[in-house]
Design a protein around this nucleic acid. Structure first.
Lengths: 121, 121
DNA sequence: ATATTGTGCATACACGATATACACAATAAT
DNA sequence: ATTATTGTGTATATCGTGTATGCACAATAT
């Protein structure tokens, strides 16, 4: 459980958990079939509510990144490197569509986006 | 008042107003010293609360895009083309820092970001 | 049986966004 | 000067989301 929760962030806690664990899974940092901590334990460790952990886990399951067995626990889905790359790019693309709609509303060309990206990345 | 409000959007209404008017000003679509509609009228036209309009206008003023004279109205700040471009890029850069932190958390290189951007832009 | 783990529900609180209404301040028009 | 217009400020209320606590139930493991 290598998670950093920001209370000042505008993002809800469950979203932060979901994104960080997603990234860890899709970067291959968590082994397949690795068992996540029990939600009660995770909630205690992270000092958040069980509901908050549950919502994050639900998001992970909805994205096919983990699967749940009542009474046993939650486990990381086994994915090939290709599948992981595919899922990662899918998630990034979805976010990019939202991000770029903002850039487009200001009339930026893709070349201008590239220029500014080089400055901030 | 060429504004489209989405009630299904996750963004608050005042944020939508701010972004759309910002874009219009910085694209030069609104003349300098142009008078925005009175907040009561704008609220009626857009079918939102005065408070919502007020918050959007306050954001615009905070960014130096409009100025307010009590009893007269709100007017678009006079900006040179260079100033408009500068302000536009500043706003985009600020948003990009947030957007790219997400991409980075998934371990994307800037080259990978470029590739995916070409697909979605 | 008992413990562990996930699930579901009820209740509660905080906060932001939104809306309505009223009073006040500054400017414009007459 | 009086009235209308416009921006400002405040009080109150509603609604949804996020978060937390607590309790009961279901499935699994020992």
């Amino acid at each position: 459980m290598n998670i950093a929760i920001s209370n000042t962030s505008e993002k809800p806690i469950y979203q932060q958990l979901f994104e960080q664990i997603s990234a860890q899974i899709l970067k291959g940092e968590l082994e397949s079939a690795y068992c996540l901590p029990p939600i009660r334990q995770a909630a205690t460790e992270l000092r958040v509510s069980i509901i908050t952990v549950k919502k994050a886990w639900e998001e992970l399951e909805r994205h096919g990144l983990i699967y749940t067995v009542t009474g046993k626990g939650c486990f990381v889905t086994e994915l090939s490197s290709d599948d992981m790359l595919q899922k990662r790019n899918d998630m990034i693309r979805m976010q990019m569509i939202i991000d770029t709609s903002y850039y487009k509303s200001f009339g930026l060309t893709i070349e201008e986006v590239f220029e500014l990206l080089k400055e901030v990345y």
